[in-house]
Design a binder for these strands. Structure first.
Lengths: 346, 346
DNA sequence: TTGTACGCGTTATCAA
DNA sequence: TTGATAACGCGTACAA
């Protein structure tokens, strides 16, 4: 076993001082050609690399980004991480991931932990519990400490920081417009409870699209699923709720689901009701997922471009981190959505 | 803005020495009740928390685990991360994620970067390129440096370290046995090229199951897909290959696919060939994914228990990190698979 | 009971 | 051209 070598050890072996070694390795002209070569050869032989921790302590910069997300087993978040990581490595940063598991407490703990020197800034999407309780003191505290935050997707309006969001309103409008244009008359929406801003915006888009086409919205066609953690039993719960929606509203001929799971479940229920897709009923989802592409029939969706969200978020954060005069000016970047037509629409 | 407070600042404010503050905060009896209270009150007010970086430097332990995986947009890996994170936080560790993107170079770079003090140990799954090139010097180097590694799923036999694997052989045997028991006579396997040990083992399981049932394996029923990075065009490539398999072997009445994507694609092709599932052809996959559960019809699969893999890997690693006398004894833990019957088998 | 000194690994400044 | 010293933030052995 040969543990990592340090400047000190090199210095001792070569009979020079630590600072000489340090300078030699950085090609400082202060050091003679001779010793420079000697030191570099030795360092190379022993595969010397500066210790990141020591550098972090000295520079007061860790060159790592903390990502806090509610759930990693989720295609959208995973795409976002991918995007973040891509620009992070490109700009010399590492990425440390904390999962809140949709819990307020875990979100707070995780952030406090990482904020104690482990990271230079955060990129995060808020947990459901946090959104529900509307307790954002941890975000405020961390910003107060001078640690920048970039929020994405599930953002908090009350917090003043950079944000990257998907164009939920416009995307939803496009989705519903597509259904209308293709002949659906009675369009249901399967959405989340209102405290999730994402669901709220998509619901608004649904209503606006209806309005633009002079269609009277009907309360009975709006299903707000109680959005808890996804467990096996809960899944059945969603299915039951959607089943009820279909049974009580035999006239439904179009469905806009605010996420992939709801859309897929709606397809399943439609099949159970012997409705043909897309002939009898059109379905459209909102997601970036794998399910949509590989479902049968292929699900038409509004793609969220999660990767772009991540890339943009990382750029915003790193720009802020590396700007000398960190101006107190924040922006909200909106990433456009895209309608991907597959087989569940006509 | 109120930046993080340090021991030094507390000491200065209170007119005592740094070590007094340090001791007071740890309830040392060396310090008088009086100053202890005073210090603690002050620290609490200013929300003092020790700086992780300084602690890491001092203790020569970062209390963080480096995870290196080929691809985060992948349900199995995501489950594994989930498992790792769960036991990591429970035992006071953070998790830093590096993506190799199936590239040898990125794998090496990422590991070298993190090995310079950022992490205490690695949990990793090897990239395809690394497996293909069979160049494992970076693993050796890092182990040499005294940094423990736990490999999972795509392991490397030549490297001496702890490993956690799914029981690919047994799982594959069970899958094929299920097909045989349910009446399939001509069972095809859709697998990867041999350099992926996982694919190799599953292929062996397929052959063993056939053998156990006195069925002669047929070369023409074995499809080894050229397993590159998954892109849109590549996806079509797989589909074509499978289509060819079906067309050239009209007698196929059972398919064992070594991953979810192949299985789903096989289902698609079967539909195109007007084969009823499971009446005319049974299909079974090998995965932990979401696709299987939500596909139509629901895909029967061998579940890999990714979460368990992650949990076990994290336990092995942390145990090793925290054992005083890090014995040079390594184990390979095998996580059992489970047959989950859905609608693609009879 | 409190404080001093040292070390973790590095770099920057200043002195030799 | 080289080296000693201080500093980043913390904990601790030892001295006062």
């Amino acid at each position: 076993m040969k543990p990592k070598i340090t400047l000190k050890q090199i210095a001792r072996e070569l009979g020079v001082s630590i600072s000489t070694v340090s300078k030699a390795l950085k090609d400082s002209t202060e050091i003679s050609e001779d010793t420079r070569e000697k030191v570099k050869a030795f360092a190379k032989f022993y595969n010397y690399r500066p210790n990141n921790i020591a550098l972090s302590l000295k520079n007061r910069k860790t060159k790592t980004i903390g990502i806090i997300i509610p759930d990693i087993v989720h295609h959208f978040f995973t795409k976002v991480i991918n995007g973040i990581e891509e620009v992070a490595v490109k700009r010399g940063y590492s990425v440390i991931v904390g999962l809140s598991n949709e819990s307020f407490e875990k979100e707070v703990l995780n952030m406090e932990m990482l904020a104690n020197g482990s990271i230079d800034g955060f990129i995060l999407s808020t947990s459901k519990e946090t959104l529900m309780q509307q307790d954002y003191h941890h975000f405020k505290d961390i910003l107060e400490e001078g640690i920048p935050i970039v929020m994405f997707d599930r953002i908090v309006d009350e917090i003043n920081c950079d944000k990257v969001v998907v164009d939920d309103l416009e995307g939803a409008k496009n989705a519903v417009q597509k259904l209308i244009s293709s002949g659906s008359k009675n369009i249901a929406i399967i959405t989340t409870k209102d405290y999730i801003n994402v669901g709220r915006l998509r619901t608004r888009g649904y209503l606006e699209a209806l309005h633009n086409n002079n269609i009277e919205p009907k309360e009975r066609l709006v299903l707000k699923v109680d959005d808890k953690l996804i467990t096996e039993e809960y899944l059945e719960g969603i299915e039951k709720e959607i089943q009820l929606l279909f049974e009580n509203n035999k006239d439904i001929d179009g469905v806009f689901a605010v996420n992939e799971l709801y859309a897929i479940t709606a397809m399943k229920v439609a099949r159970l009701c012997n409705k043909r897709i897309p002939e009898d009923i059109q379905i459209i989802g909102f997601t970036d997922g794998v399910l949509s592409r590989h479902s049968y029939p292929g699900l038409t969706t509004i793609s969220q471009h999660g990767r772009e969200v991540g890339k943009k978020a990382a750029e915003l954060l790193i720009d802020k981190l590396e700007s000398e005069n960190f101006e107190e000016t924040y922006q909200t970047v909106i990433i456009n959505t895209e309608l991907i037509e597959r087989e569940t629409t006509r």
